[in-house]
Design a protein around this nucleic acid. Structure first.
Lengths: 139, 139
DNA sequence: AACATTTTGCAACAAAGTTGCATTCTTTCT
DNA sequence: AGAAAGAATGCAACTTTGTTGCAAAATGTT
């Protein structure tokens, strides 16, 4: 059961402003990860660039969204699932999939991150997996 | 047995210029991945920013270096091992490790990338794994 | 050594992200 | 409900990062 944007903001102790609600709703209704640019395109008429930057920053700090590692130098954000938010320290052991055809990036929440055997002396804290290829819709 | 910068440039059919050699030597002597900024800091007195950008771009195209996905929006580059270069199409199924303490990123060439079970309809082409935690030196 | 071809540096530009400050909006308290 | 305190927003200016065109310099080829 998905929380509403109001509920999420309230439970993160954030004041409920029109901008935050709008941006959060965009995430809630988007199946794929979003870059700053995507959000700016959607609501640049209504909100300032700087506001979007600051809102994303705030959401990150509160663990509402997380960043997805990528090689193309574009920071993409996606909603965290409840597990991330509830637990005290935040870990996003997600598998992310980037489609080479449509360019979209999605979180494969259901897919379990396999464990890696690291060399001696290394301790893993967070594991990120980015798989690229052809997605379901583009197959 | 490590190739010299001259050998690498020659086998990639690149003309041997002082700039390329310098930058390649920086990679050869660095145990960790480097961002454009790192290289600029080392040799900004000698080479122009633009030259560094173009050199990195050239190395990428020739498969001499590869980019490492990251969440922090900084493109980092590392040398490819010979396997990457030899095979026709280049795939960097590496495990990369970023240390939360010293901030350095290294390629774990020895570590095998585990296979993932993707949802139905998804086809994987390249798999990247980024592990963060505490590295050997900082343990 | 002289030619054709690449590479480099410079300047100018474009895009991405940050900071300070005054104004406006939320929330809280009575 | 209204006022005060605190937080968020918009604007302007700025920094950083990356790109492009072009003339000058360096490379390698004969």
């Amino acid at each position: 059961m998905k929380k509403s944007s109001e509920e999420i903001l309230k439970s993160s102790a954030l004041s409920l402003t029109a901008g935050r609600k709008t941006i959060l709703d965009i995430f809630l209704s988007s199946p794929n990860a979003l870059a700053h640019q995507d959000i700016e395109t959607i609501c640049k008429e209504k909100y300032d660039r700087v506001t979007i930057y600051r809102t994303l920053q705030t959401f990150l700090e509160k663990g509402i969204i997380h960043t997805i590692p990528s090689s193309d130098n574009i920071t993409r954000y996606a909603l965290c699932n409840d597990d991330c938010i509830v637990t005290g320290h935040h870990h996003d052991n997600h598998v992310h999939f980037t489609c080479d055809t449509c360019g979209k990036t999605i979180c494969l929440d259901e897919t379990e991150v396999p464990s890696v055997h690291l060399p001696k002396g290394f301790r893993a804290h967070q594991i990120n997996m980015i798989v690229s290829g052809v997605c379901k819709s583009c197959a």
